[in-house]
Computed example of a mutant assay.
Amino acid sequence: MDRDSGPDGAFIDVDRVEKVFDVRRKTGFLRRERRRVRAVDGISFRVARGEMVGCIGPNGAGKSTTIKMLTGILTPSAGRLRVAGIDPARERGRLAQRIGVVFGQRTTLWWDLPLIDSYRLMHRMYRIPDARYRANLDRCVDLLDLSGLLDVPVRQLSLGQRMRGDIAAALLHDPDVLYLDEPTIGLDVISKARVREFLRTLNADRGTTVLLTTHDLQDIEQLCSRVVVIDHGRLMYDGSLAGLHEAGGSERVLVVDLERELPPIDVPPARVVRVEGPRQWLAFPADRSAAPLVARIAERCPLVDLSVREPDIEAVIARMYAQGVADRTERALS
Rank of each mutant, 00 (worst) to 15 (best):
S225R: 15
R226D: 02
R226F: 03
R226C: 01
V227F: 04
V227W: 00
V228W: 06
V228E: 02
V228Q: 10
V229I: 12
V229H: 03
V229E: 01
I230N: 01
I230G: 01
I230E: 04
D231A: 09
D231W: 03
H232E: 14
G233S: 11
G233N: 05
G233M: 11
G233D: 12
R234P: 02
R234W: 07
R234E: 07
R234N: 08
L235H: 00
M236K: 14
M236E: 15
M236D: 15
M236Y: 14
M236S: 15
Y237P: 13
Y237V: 08
Y237K: 12
Y237F: 15
Y237E: 06
D238P: 02
D238S: 12
D238F: 01
D238I: 00
D238R: 04
D238E: 11
D238T: 02
G239E: 03
G239H: 02
G239R: 00
G239W: 00
S240M: 05
S240Y: 03
S240N: 05
L241V: 07
L241F: 06
A242V: 06
A242M: 08
A242D: 14
A242I: 02
A242K: 06
A242P: 01
G243W: 02
G243I: 01
L244Y: 13
L244M: 14
H245G: 11
H245M: 10
H245Y: 13
E246V: 07
E246R: 10
A247Q: 09
A247G: 08
G248V: 06
G248H: 03
G248A: 12
G249E: 07
G249F: 05
G249N: 07
G249P: 02
S250V: 02
S250A: 10
S250D: 09
E251C: 13
E251S: 13
R252H: 05
R252N: 07
R252D: 01
R252T: 07
V253S: 09
V253F: 04
L254W: 12
V255G: 05
V255N: 06
V256C: 06
V256D: 10
V256Y: 08
V256E: 07
V256I: 15
V256F: 11
D257E: 15
D257C: 12
D257K: 14
D257F: 10
D257S: 12
L258N: 12
L258H: 12
E259H: 10
